[in-house]
Amino acid sequence: SKICLVCGDEASGCHYGVVTCGSCKVFFKRAVEGQHNYLCAGRNDCIIDKIRRKNCPACRLQKCLQAGMNLGARKS
């Protein structure tokens, strides 16, 4: 099975251009559409994995963007 390129959980498919799990898919959509201005309490290098993905939305969003997630991406 495929793994989420953001948190490493089991992926549910290709979302916004990137193979991700459902949790990261929903997080990314809400983060971008809600125009959240997340700030990292650390050094913008928090570990984002299945267990810690909820700890720092700033670093999670950064990881989504680095993976290439794009709200305008067509479903493939």
Rank of each mutant, 00 (worst) to 15 (best):
E33R: 11
C14V: 13
S1E: 14
Y16P: 05
K2G: 04
A58F: 07
A58H: 06
S1L: 06
I3K: 04
F28A: 03
F28G: 01
G34S: 08
G42Y: 09
G22W: 07
D45P: 05
A67W: 09
C14Q: 14
K63S: 06
G22L: 07
C21Q: 02
R52H: 09
G13I: 05
E10F: 05
E10C: 03
Y16G: 09
G13W: 03
C21R: 00
D45L: 07
G68M: 04
D49K: 04
M69A: 09
C64P: 00
R74W: 13
V32L: 09
S12H: 06
Y38N: 07
G68T: 02
F27L: 01
K63T: 11
C64S: 06
G42T: 06
G17V: 03
V32K: 13
A41F: 03
R52I: 15
C4W: 00
Y38S: 10
V32H: 04
L61G: 02
I47A: 11
M69R: 02
K75R: 09
V19E: 15
I48E: 13
I47N: 12
P57I: 04
R43D: 11
K63R: 07
G72H: 15
S12L: 15
C40V: 00
N55I: 13
C7P: 00
G22V: 07
K2R: 07
L39S: 10
K29G: 10
N55E: 07
K25Q: 13
I48Q: 12
P57T: 07
N55H: 10
L39C: 14
K54I: 12
I3F: 10
H15F: 14
S76D: 11
V6Y: 02
G8C: 03
S23G: 13
A67T: 14
C59M: 00
V26I: 14
D45G: 08
Q66A: 14
V26R: 15
S1D: 02
V18M: 03
K75M: 11
L5G: 06
G72T: 06
N70E: 11
G8L: 08
N44A: 12
A31P: 02
S23V: 04
Q35W: 04
D45T: 06
V18A: 05
Q66G: 10
F27K: 00
I3D: 09
R74C: 13
G72P: 14
Q66L: 06
A67F: 05
C21D: 00
C46A: 01
A58Q: 15
N37T: 11
H15R: 05
G17N: 05
A58S: 14
Q66W: 11
Q62Y: 05
G72Q: 15
G17F: 05
G72A: 08
V6T: 05
L65E: 14
A11Y: 03
